[in-house]
């Protein structure tokens, strides 16, 4: 990603999507998916190693961190881990295929969900976890995974259309 794309495409898009997300959540008080992670994961396959890519990932991780009370460092490390691992995998695999992208998003989301689940159970202190709780939890997790995954695909198509090239 060069400076022109960063300032003319990425930043306006991030502002618009953050704004729409904020308005949607404010009105409905409900967010079954992770917008920023979907945004980040969709963007990663289109990025190459440069300062603007780092800056984009950094901004996204900070926006995500502001949604939680966990340290920003957690999301900075996590998003950079996704980004750098994709850059490394590019050297080994053919990353332009749909199968690879889906696999990458799936594994990344799975890792994200594992971390979220650990943090959730770390804060939760219920003495009894009944059947209804587990049922709700599984439904939430599945909804979270599939909706975020769908948004990854949607954002990827949108970014690819806007940026107009595979790697920037």
């Amino acid at each position: 990603m060069d400076g022109k794309i960063f300032f003319n495409t990425f930043l306006p898009l991030l502002i618009i999507i953050s704004f729409l997300k904020g308005v949607f959540v404010y009105i409905t008080s409900y967010s079954p998916l992770d917008f920023y992670s979907a945004f980040c994961l969709a963007l990663i396959p289109l990025l190459s190693l440069n300062i603007y890519s780092f800056l984009s990932i950094f901004l996204l991780s900070l926006l995500k961190a502001l949604e939680t009370y966990y340290a920003s460092l957690l999301f900075i490390v996590l998003y950079f881990l996704f980004f750098l691992s994709f850059q490394h995998l590019k050297k080994i695999f053919k990353t332009e295929t749909k199968f690879f992208l889906f696999l990458f998003w799936g594994i990344s989301l799975l890792l994200l969900i594992i971390i979220k689940t650990i943090l959730f159970f770390d804060t939760l202190s219920l003495a009894v976890l009944d059947y209804n709780f587990w049922l709700n939890f599984i439904v939430k997790i599945l909804g979270y995974f599939f909706l975020t995954f769908l948004f990854c695909i949607g954002f990827y198509i949108l970014f690819k259309g806007m940026i107009g090239q595979t790697h920037v």
Partner: peptide, 8 residues
């Protein structure tokens, strides 16, 4: 701002 998600 409402920072709600399925976990918090």
């Amino acid at each position: 701002y409402k920072a709600v998600d399925p976990f918090s």
